[in-house]
């Protein structure tokens, strides 16, 4: 019995050290300037103002927490290309969260506005 337990312990140790339980995903982001040069596509720009997801777009401030209001704004033209810009103090996590919320609100094409390197 004891040798079996030893082997099982070693197997357990191996799997505990080598496996990852976190589900790794990816979020595709396009190059915004490549699409804005074409005149046929409709683009809508928005700027993330605060870390908790308040955006300003087309002259109005919208909290992305307010799913109904955001869906109403996105619903005006859900097929447009949404180009997301940020204020300087915004973190990458806040950017990703806003992209998620826009996607939930029905936006299908999301792009992050590139900055000058």
């Amino acid at each position: 019995m004891v040798p079996l337990v030893d082997v099982v312990f070693i197997l357990l140790l191996f799997f505990m050290l080598t496996t990852s339980i976190a589900k790794e995903k990816q979020l595709p982001v396009g190059y915004s300037t490549a699409t804005t040069s074409s005149t046929e596509v409709v683009t809508r720009e928005l700027v993330i103002e605060t870390e908790d997801g308040v955006i300003s777009a087309e002259g109005q401030r919208i909290s992305t927490h307010d799913a109904k209001k955001l869906a109403a704004w996105v619903g005006l033209d859900a097929d447009a290309i949404y180009i997301v810009d940020t204020q300087s103090q915004i973190s990458t996590q806040a950017l990703v969260t806003v992209l998620d919320r826009l996607s939930d609100a029905g936006a299908t094409q999301l792009m992050v506005k590139e900055d000058q390197p």
Binding site: Y31, S88, S91, T92, L95, E114, P117
Partner: peptide, 19 residues
């Protein structure tokens, strides 16, 4: 990109990649 990295830096990397 690190979650705590400024989004401006992430956007700058995207700008460089576009080049």
């Amino acid at each position: 990109a690190d979650a705590r990295l400024a989004a401006v830096r992430t956007r700058a990397i995207l700008g460089a990649l576009r080049e």
